[in-house]
Amino acid sequence: MPESASRRLDRGRIVDAAIAIADAEGIAAVTIRRVAEALKAGAMSLYRHVDGKDALLDALADRIAADIPLPESGSGWREGLHARAVATRRICLRHPWAARLLESRLASGPARLRMQEAGLALLAGDGFSLSLACRALTVLDSYIYGFTLRESALPPSDALPDAVRDVAPAIRPEDYPHIVTAMMHAMAEAQKDGGAAALMEADFLFGLDLLLDGFAAAKG
């Protein structure tokens, strides 16, 4: 690779290419060599900007965190955490690999540190103890990532009715009456405006409100 092309590489372009690969092929496809190929660069030239695959994955996690808005100044803890949860879910659905990556990376870059600092400050400012604030953020993030991982694994909204019909014959009403009733209810809800996506969003917001109510009760 010509030296001039190498100089055009920077960390931002490398992360952009890695995200495009992860979106198209899954996070397992993201390697230094694969990103170098996408950038039409030599693999060794990438090491001037990232130390290796682990550092690259940490950079991807931090880029995702940077897209999550920090709480607005003056917002209460409930409004701030609600907005954070909704934004995080939206981003994780846009990048189906992001929830697992954010949950699994131990190293935190500047954006992830700012996100955690803002969350702790929000709770501490409204009278949460440090212990309760840490637990609340851990539980909240676990809920967001777990929900979006499950949501990302579901068939697309337009394919969901066919998927349900495919499994329905194996679920006999006489053996599983409550499951069959629940499936019929879900199918009916999915036929309404917004389809299955609106149903999943309603489920997410329902669970989120329960969590925030629990945090308020624990705070006393």
Results as ranks from 00 to 15, higher is better:
R84G: 00
Q116C: 06
A218F: 08
S131M: 12
R114S: 10
A18Q: 02
D126C: 12
A65N: 04
P155E: 05
I171S: 03
I171A: 05
L57V: 00
R7S: 10
D209M: 10
A124M: 09
D158W: 15
L123R: 03
P156N: 10
G194N: 06
G127A: 07
I144R: 06
G194P: 03
E37F: 10
R63F: 03
K219N: 09
A18K: 01
L39P: 00
R13T: 14
Q191Y: 07
A159G: 05
A170Y: 14
H178F: 15
Q191F: 07
V15C: 01
M44E: 12
L211H: 11
E189F: 02
W97C: 02
G119C: 07
L199I: 12
T181E: 15
G195I: 04
C134H: 08
H95S: 06
W77T: 00
L208C: 03
G220W: 09
L39M: 07
G214A: 11
H82F: 14
V30S: 00
D158L: 15
L113S: 13
G207Y: 05
G42R: 09
H185S: 10
R105Y: 12
P155C: 09
L102F: 02
E117A: 13
S73H: 09
A17S: 06
A5Y: 05
D51A: 13
G220R: 07
V50L: 13
A38F: 04
L60R: 00
L130P: 02
A118C: 08
A168W: 08
I19K: 02
R90D: 12
S142G: 12
P177R: 06
S104A: 14
A55T: 07
R100G: 13
G52A: 05
C134F: 08
A218N: 10
L70N: 07
L56Y: 02
W77K: 03
L212K: 08
A188E: 13
E3C: 08
L212C: 08
L122T: 08
A22K: 00
D67F: 04
L102E: 01
A85Y: 01
A170F: 15
D51W: 06
L199F: 04
R34V: 15
G127F: 04
V167D: 11
R48I: 06
A170K: 14
R94M: 05
E3A: 11
K192N: 15
A163D: 06
L39S: 01
A20L: 13
D203Y: 06
A107W: 10
L81Q: 01
V167E: 14
A216W: 03
D193P: 11
D162I: 08
A136C: 11
G76R: 14
A121G: 07
L149R: 06
M1R: 15
A61H: 04
I27M: 11
P96L: 09
R78G: 04
L70G: 09
A159M: 14
R150L: 12
